[in-house]
Amino acid sequence: MQTAMSDDRTQIFSRIKTALAPLPQRAALPNYARELPICRAHPEFSELWELFSHKAKQVNGTPLVGLATLGSWLHEKKQTHGYCDRALAERLRAMPEFEGITLETEFDRGRFDDFAFGITLAAGVIAETGSLILKDESTSARLGALAPWTHAAIVDPATIYPDTVTALENLGSDPSVIWATGPSKTADVEGILIEGVHGPGVQIVCLDA
């Protein structure tokens, strides 16, 4: 297999070189302004969080402010058993709004249906698009942020990136960076929008103000 594969490699490179050799000149890499891909067509907001909320709502995301609000939201929706990042669990358990809510800190894939929600730590959010950023480094379990119907990502106000360009400049060295923009969705059946296909049907971003 090794020999055959390196043959394929040699062949592909030689075929590319042969294909390009007759070109009299090669197209240059264009210079373009850093701001070019940034969308500015939105109302003016004084705070980035407000722009984020505006954009998140456009894609049916659920922005919340304060962990207490999240506790009340879960009670209101009768979602009282879920997964929670170990780093947050103690703090949340001590809050009166989380009384009566069971937080498990291991996501047991054998009981994936038992978790009504997953609470994880976001690595940041992108105001321009209403996206939340998840990284392996800060997300304790990929499945905890994905399998439950409700996913609540807790975001530190210091990690609100203004736009996709800035977020790209801050990808860092993490092997898995995810931008999630609203709940999982499909329009495969007759173009009708349905949320909650494989991932969360409710995507909460909760500002830890």
Binding site: C39, K55, V59, T129, S131, T164, L171, S176, V177, I178, W179, A180, T181, G182, P183, S184, K185, G199
Partner: peptide, 8 residues
């Protein structure tokens, strides 16, 4: 504006 999941 963006797809729901963008994975790097």
């Amino acid at each position: 504006q963006l797809t729901v999941y963008t994975q790097f």
